[in-house]
Design a protein around this nucleic acid. Structure first.
Length: 638
RNA sequence: GCUGACGUAGCUCAAUUGGCAGAGCAGCUGAUUUGUAAUCAGCAGGUUGGGAGUUCGAUUCUCCCCGUCAGCUCCA
């Protein structure tokens, strides 16, 4: 007998092998109707899988988040069912639920076209209407091989099962799949879904193996949720930094320059420069020293650092200089280390914090390049902190302050992950544990919530990853702080301690924005191109209604400029409506319309971006004060 | 790098089965002097991404290269 504990504390005893369906029915017929699956001892299983263990027992309905993954996984089977009907020769790969939906991989002679997707979707609706039950069977290896004799990909997976593993198959009408489940009771449960796109995907994610055709799709319980999801995809498209950057004239690329290399236009450069100036002031306040290091350096340096050994394939090739090999730098750390080593260092010098907006070049495979987000040349706001082991906690504490201040300025909420020892790691386990604990301690001490990213650390040390959450809820890579055991060893870094003997300093790598290119790209999407005043390339556009107030308009521009605002006049001989529209499309934060009335009272009719016709007439002096205040505080909103 | 799709004026897009490459916006010139999201007219703008091939004839068909996009893989 199995003992099951229901959420209300009630205890049920059922014989081993009993079906959850029957137990749910005995709790209530209404509950059975709503039941999608059950959770036993923390594990989700479907209603028709025999119970094998006792423990906490919970019936999952549409309300439980776990049930959505079950629905989506079943959606993948239904997709495969439809594909198999229309393309009987398609070999099936895997079809799991993923974060926002599900996919299924097929091996086919002819790749899928968008028209195919429409047909598959129509066929899926038929399968759904036919209301095939998902039937689970547990079978022997031999029986399974028979059932999947025409599916080489499944046979490959079957060969990996150990003898004591349960092999289960699921059928829904005409389709059978090797699958451990769980599934919804029948195909009619899938109501709100959409096939999204196709793409190639390597079999088992291995680029040396054949490429399968993947169909991505999504599904939700409620129609509104599906629509909201599709709307979110639209919204992401609307905010695409590549489109917005073109409209706003922020950057471009040029095949003559080379793919993945960004040309910052004047307006984009203003944004970047504002960020750099802000950050420079910020880090000077936080005790950093600014340094500069060369863009190409002798390859020998990267032999010492180990970059050549570990990242050779993503470094640009050597440049021959009088017989010596030089490389564009992929990292700034070796240069900073050389500065450290330019003197003998005392414990009194530490911590030393070297910061640089360092441009680095990394070879990225052509297929991964993406706007400003993934490029071959970018500028890191890089810094390296050299300190004693004892100073690490206080340095981490400082860094957390720094990151928090910066992320608030840009209006990003964030979460923190502590990435621990990866499989491929140097240094002993003891040291890793100690370093991880140091980081965790520093976080806990200030009551900072964080999660662990097990095995996510870099080979030379654990790290803290800040994940930014943007305006439409997407996560982005934010600041990172890494502890490094490797480079101080490799370069033989030393400082003289109070005991007059040499000691090895500890090194922290940290970036705040990371790649300036990626960060600005992210900001474009976060703000949907409508930058807060301090970042806006053009902050105020002054629009004289007619030529007779042009001089007054010019004086308004001059007064704004003299207080540090980026103001321009739009005195083109276009209609007022035309110029207003242009200003809105360019997402200018403030438009100051001036006519006779304003000129006579030294005021402006202020139009705030996005506020439409709502406008107020204010004195020029008041407006300047308002702008100055907003700039000084780097206000996110007017 | 791989799979698939795409590449026509600065931008967004047209162009029957292979038959003189077009529009809107932007630009320039002129007129218009405007009270809160597109004033009117004229002009100019192209080796149809590059190269080769098939053809009487290629934006259209074939091949190679370059680039872009969706993914896969990768990301110190």
């Amino acid at each position: 007998m199995l003992t099951l504990r229901l959420p209300d504390g009630a205890i049920r005893e059922v014989p081993e092998g009993a079906l959850p369906r029957d137990l749910v029915a005995s709790i209530g017929p209404r509950l059975l109707r709503d039941a999608i699956a059950v959770k036993v001892d923390g594990e989700v299983q479907d209603l028709n899988t025999p119970l094998r263990k006792g423990g906490d027992f919970k019936v999952l309905t549409e309300k439980d988040p776990e049930s959505l993954a079950v629905l989506r996984h079943s959606g993948a089977h239904i997709l495969a069912t439809a594909v198999r009907r229309l393309r009987p020769n398609a070999k099936i790969g895997f079809g799991p639920a993923i974060e926002d939906g599900f996919y299924y991989d097929f091996e086919v002679d002819q790749p899928f076209t968008p028209e195919d997707l429409e047909k598959f979707e129509a066929e899926m609706r038929k399968v759904i209407a036919e209301k095939h039950p998902f039937v689970r069977e547990e079978v022997s290896q031999a029986e399974a091989r028979k059932r999947f004799s025409d599916d080489p990909l499944k046979l490959e997976r079957l060969s990996e099962f150990s003898d004591d593993e349960i092999i289960s198959t699921y059928t829904d009408g005409p389709f059978i799949d090797l699958c451990k489940g769980p599934h919804v009771p029948d195909t009619s449960y899938l109501k709100n879904f959409k096939l999204l796109h196709t793409a190639g995907a390597y079999w088992r994610g291995d680029e040396h193996r054949q490429m399968l055709q993947r169909i991505y799709a999504t599904a939700f319980w409620k129609k509104e949720d599906l629509e909201e999801h599709l709307h979110r995809l639209e919204e992401a498209k609307r905010r695409d930094h590549r489109t917005l950057a073109q409209q706003l004239d922020l950057y471009s690329t040029d095949p003559r320059v080379g793919p993945g290399l960004i040309l910052w236009h004047p307006k984009g450069a203003i944004i970047r420069n504002e960020i750099e100036e802000y950050e420079r002031a910020l880090i000077l306040r936080h005790g950093y020293d600014l340094v500069y290091t060369p863009h190409i350096v002798s390859e020998k340096l990267f032999q010492i650092s180990g970059h050549l050994e570990n990242y050779r394939e993503s470094m640009f090739g050597p440049i021959d200089v009088e017989g010596a090999a030089y490389r564009p730098k992929p990292m700034n750390c070796p240069g900073h280390i050389c500065i450290y080593q330019s003197h003998q260092r005392s414990y009194r010098d530490l911590p030393l914090r070297y910061a640089e907006f360092g441009s680095v070049y990394r070879y990225e495979r052509s297929g991964v390049l993406h706007g400003m987000m993934r490029v071959r040349g970018f500028t890191q706001d890089d810094a390296h902190i050299f300190c004693t082991l004892e100073q690490v906690p206080s340095e981490i504490d400082r860094l957390l302050d720094l990151c928090d201040e910066m992320l608030k300025t840009f209006g990003y909420p964030y979460t923190i992950e502590l990435a621990t020892r990866p499989d491929k790691a140097i240094g002993d386990a003891e040291r890793w544990k100690q370093a991880e604990d140091t980081l965790a301690e520093a976080l806990k001490k200030r009551g900072q919530a964080f999660t662990y990213d097990e095995g996510g650390g870099v080979f030379y040390g654990p790290k803290l990853d800040f994940k930014l959450i943007d305006a439409i809820g997407r996560k982005w890579q934010g600041p990172t702080v890494q502890l490094d055991f490797n480079l101080p060893e490799r370069f033989g870094l030393e400082y003289t301690g109070a005991d007059n003997t040499p000691h090895r300093p500890t090194m922290l790598h940290r970036v705040l924005v990371g790649s300036m290119e990626r960060f600005v790209g992210g900001l474009i999407e976060h703000y949907a191109g409508a930058f807060p005043l301090w970042l806006a390339p053009e902050q105020v556009r002054v629009i004289p209604i007619a030529d007779d107030v042009k001089d007054f308009a010019k004086s308004v521009v001059e007064r704004l400029r003299s207080r540090g605002a980026r103001a321009h006049i739009d005195d083109r001989s276009e209609t007022l409506n035309y110029r207003i529209r242009d200003g809105e499309l360019q997402k200018i934060p403030y438009m100051a319309v001036v006519g006779k009335r304003e000129a006579e009272s030294d005021s402006i009719a202020l139009r705030v971006r996005g506020a439409g016709k709502k406008q107020e007439v204010i004195k020029v002096s008041d407006f300047i004060a308002r702008v100055e205040d907003e700039l000084a505080t780097r206000a996110l909103k007017p």
